[in-house]
């Protein structure tokens, strides 16, 4: 597997007030691959993914330190707004903007950033909805409110919204934890499709999901990265006892 490293994380620390949530994380994310982060709840996996697009620091009392290279450039030194345009994010619970239609939700990132060319917007909205495998379900109701969709559709709408600003990397923070199994299956299929065009990092509390969708997997425990490797290796021949314990269900 010889691809370029899109993201490189070096000695990443993070805190909430005085409590250290991440301790010297080192890993990388390969281009057009899916990288999963697994671990028991409270292990810091959500904090970690929120550091990757500087969302972590938006919470009161949150700090981080270390180096995160995006194509060799340290994002810790770039305006976080610009970082987030290149590294998009989808959250645990679907978060469509309640005052906006389906169309406006997808176009939100562009519109809020001053893009107003109608035909350009139309084109991008359709493309993003197609990429998110939602277009056929909503093409006749683009003007309906985004919150009128079902939970699974809402989550794909949020993915389409993230895709519309053309990020290079997409972060998925437990995107299926609020969804039913059928919607979860659709999102997993979607992740396979998106891999062709985007680099993806996904946090999941569901090991089977990581095994199904990810090329690389990192195992977190108590704010530390215990092991990081090719997914098949992690699930079949983990090197660390603690990883083995977790994937075989002995704790966590």
């Amino acid at each position: 597997m010889d691809k370029t490293k899109r993201l490189e994380i070096k000695d990443l620390d993070a805190w909430f007030f005085d409590k250290q949530a991440l301790n010297k994380i080192n890993m990388y994310v390969q281009e057009k691959q899916v990288t999963a982060i697994i671990g028991p709840s409270g292990c810091g996996k959500s904090t970690f993914i929120r550091c990757l697009n500087r969302m972590h620091e938006t919470v009161q009392g949150a700090r981080s330190a270390g180096t995160i290279l995006l194509d060799g450039e340290n994002i810790m030194r770039i305006d976080p707004v610009l970082v987030r345009r290149r590294i998009g994010m989808v959250f645990q619970k679907p978060t469509p903007f309640p005052t906006m239609s389906i169309y406006d939700n997808v176009a939100a990132g562009l519109k809020l950033n001053g893009v107003s060319n109608r035909s350009q917007l139309d084109e991008i909205v359709e493309k993003s909805l197609r990429q998110a495998a939602l277009f056929n379900e909503v093409k006749d109701s683009l003007q309906k409110p985004g919150v009128s969709l079902s939970g699974g559709q809402q989550q794909r709408l949020c993915i389409a919204r993230a895709l519309a600003v053309k990020p290079e990397v997409i972060l998925l923070d437990e995107p299926c934890s609020a969804l039913d199994p059928i919607s979860t299956g659709k999102i997993e299929d979607l992740i396979h499709e998106l891999k062709k065009d985007f680099t993806i990092v996904i946090v999941t509390h569901n090991m089977q999901q990581a095994a199904r969708v990810a090329d690389f997997t990192g195992f977190f425990l108590l704010g530390q990265m215990i092991e990081f490797d090719i997914t098949t290796k992690i699930f079949t021949a983990p090197e660390d006892k603690r990883t083995e314990g977790y994937i075989t269900g002995r704790f966590g």
Partner: peptide, 25 residues
Amino acid sequence: TSLREAGLALGVPEWKVSLRVVLRT
């Protein structure tokens, strides 16, 4: 807060999120 974060995650500056997402809602 999740709505505010969703706006920020799109690479929209904070003040625009405050006005056009949060205040709008």
